[in-house]
Design a protein around this nucleic acid. Structure first.
Lengths: 140, 140
DNA sequence: ATCAGTGCAAACGATTTGCACCTCG
DNA sequence: CGAGGTGCAAATCGTTTGCACTGAT
């Protein structure tokens, strides 16, 4: 799955390690930590996987090249990475079951800063909503 | 400053350590890390400060009691804590000078989830905006 | 060939934990 | 007095770094 047909961005030395990290991020349905990427690569292939430090270095390089964006989940401190693309997703985190529900709309479309901050140019944003999902409400 | 006149929430054993952490969080103008709280306590008082592990344990206890909320800044992975109160502030982070500009409006006032997520009850949210401030734009 | 990329192991910073002692209620 | 809180030092977890080696261009 996704092993072929991937266009690699230019300006990067495409070692097999980097291709694998890029593929995992391309297939990912949500932001992944370095360790998750590391595990996915080993699970996926017959290959024995790469050093974790290599994954971190690749991610740093990708971030530099604006191929991936680095961020963290609201509820813990592990850093996650996701491939930068036009669309983006926000999540609602259920405080009960810790499930993350993807939202399909972005409230930032309706945002404007007040006068005092007019000088600020917005290039991105991060939003997470939290609360309780149907199931967890009923359990309570 | 703020040494007196603080009402302590009930259901907590109010040792002097806990009072100091509570006071620092009450005076704080933005979320603080455990280390910042630790430093503030030593700076503030003549007291020699408490073990960092104690600060962490107090913060965990406060979180449990819903006295503080735990979160992280978008751009790094250190965990920060802030006293839970009605009002809240969002920040715009300048990617140039790394300054954080507090916003005085909350876009969540205009948010509603789509039908498919109607079952979800929102209890809170976190939003950060990033981009470039006036000064950094000019420098560029 | 050359210089960037990689693996490994050691270093690091933030956070957590075990244990003996102390203190609030 | 007793349950729970605290200090200290050691342990753990995620992430970073130094160094010698390997591989993409």
């Amino acid at each position: 799955m996704g092993k072929v047909d991937l266009k690699y961005p230019e300006g990067v030395k495409w070692t097999k390690q980097r291709k694998d990290v890029y593929r995992v991020l391309s297939d990912a349905k949500e932001p992944l930590s370095a360790v998750q990427i590391y595990n996915n690569i080993q699970k996926d292939g017959n290959e024995e996987g790469y050093a974790l430090s290599t994954i971190y270095r690749i991610l740093a390089a990708f971030e530099e090249k604006l191929i991936v964006a680095k961020s963290t989940w609201m509820d813990n401190s592990t850093v996650v990475y996701e491939k930068i693309k036009e669309e983006h997703t926000h999540y609602a985190l259920c405080l009960g079951c810790r499930k993350r529900i993807p939202l399909h709309a972005c409230p930032m479309n309706h945002i404007h800063l007040e006068e005092e901050n007019m000088g600020f140019t917005i290039t991105g944003h991060k939003l997470e909503i939290y609360g309780y999902c149907q199931g967890c409400k009923e359990k309570d």
